[in-house]
């Protein structure tokens, strides 16, 4: 799980044109706490994500990184503080939760494709039934995104017939078909063979280049360096340090961050 990879893509990634909005807030987390029964898993999380930001969250296992992004689309419930996504505050109100989930895509470590549906059906299910888009139009959109992740020829196969890297690219395309404003990545390459990591990172980079707001929990430090505009380091359910990638990697401030980086970078 906590393999750290330095995989990068071969081409240079130019982040200069990736605009971060200075006024539009995508996600705001204010004084948020979460408990798993008695265990205080997230403590006083404060985080403001502007539109167009590419944020990488790093940290040791059990530091609460995944739990944090799962709170953002309410796969996990928080007990204290506020989470506001696209101006909608997440509460127990199911309507609001669905509203947020429509605009926030999520990619999981284990892909979570629907094994009983074809790739095309995986991609069109939510657009048709959540957005009410006609089937033909949803299929055209799906094919567009499959081409973007470079596997249009797999459209009629079942997930079980694809490699891990292909499945993860389908999962990304499935989220994109809902045309979300924000994408959450929960260790998207951790379950992949080393040879397949790159093809998934390539898709994520091209998304970043188009200005998608992204939060990625990942151990891909090469990706963080190339793509992120901000790296957040978490430990014991708290944000320990955050900075621009260059400064984060070359000049970490907190002792815990230094220790973490010394162990993963050689």
């Amino acid at each position: 799980m906590s393999q750290v990879s330095e995989t990068t893509v071969d081409r240079p990634v130019d982040t200069s044109h990736m605009k971060v909005s200075s006024t539009n807030v995508a996600i705001e987390v204010i004084g948020m706490h979460k408990w798993y029964s008695d265990f205080h898993v997230l403590r006083d999380i404060n985080l403001k994500v502007m539109e167009g930001e590419r944020i990488v969250i790093a940290g040791p296992s059990g530091s609460g990184k995944s739990t944090l992004i799962r709170c953002i689309n309410r796969l996990e419930e928080h007990q204290e503080g506020q989470i506001i996504v696209n101006g909608t505050e997440l509460t127990a109100d199911l309507k609001r939760i669905d509203e947020v989930r429509r605009e926030v895509g999520m990619v999981f470590q284990h892909f979570n494709l629907f094994p009983h549906l074809t790739i095309l059906e995986n991609l069109t299910l939510a657009p048709i039934w959540v957005r009410g888009i006609p089937k033909a139009e949803a299929e055209a959109t799906a094919m567009h995104y499959l081409e973007r992740v470079k596997i249009p020829e797999q459209a009629l196969k079942y997930p079980g017939q694809l490699s891990g890297g292909q499945q993860q690219r389908v999962a990304i395309a499935r989220s994109l078909c809902m045309q979300p404003k924000i994408m959450l990545f929960d260790e998207p390459t951790s379950a992949l063979d080393p040879e397949m990591v790159k093809e998934v990172l390539e898709v994520m980079i091209s998304l970043a280049e188009e200005g998608m707001t992204m939060i990625c929990v990942t151990h891909e430090m090469g990706f963080a360096r190339q793509v992120a505009n901000r790296v957040i380091f978490m430990d014991q359910g708290q944000i320990i340090e955050q900075n621009e990638p260059e400064a984060f990697f070359s000049n970490p401030q907190h002792e815990r961050t230094k220790l973490f980086l010394s162990q993963i970078l050689h």
Partner: peptide
């Protein structure tokens, strides 16, 4: 993960149950 994937796409409870 199947429940979560359905939920993260914005599918409601009955849709998740029926389709997934």
């Amino acid at each position: 993960g199947q429940y979560e994937a359905g939920a993260s796409l914005g599918l409601g409870y009955w849709q998740r149950m029926y389709f997934i």
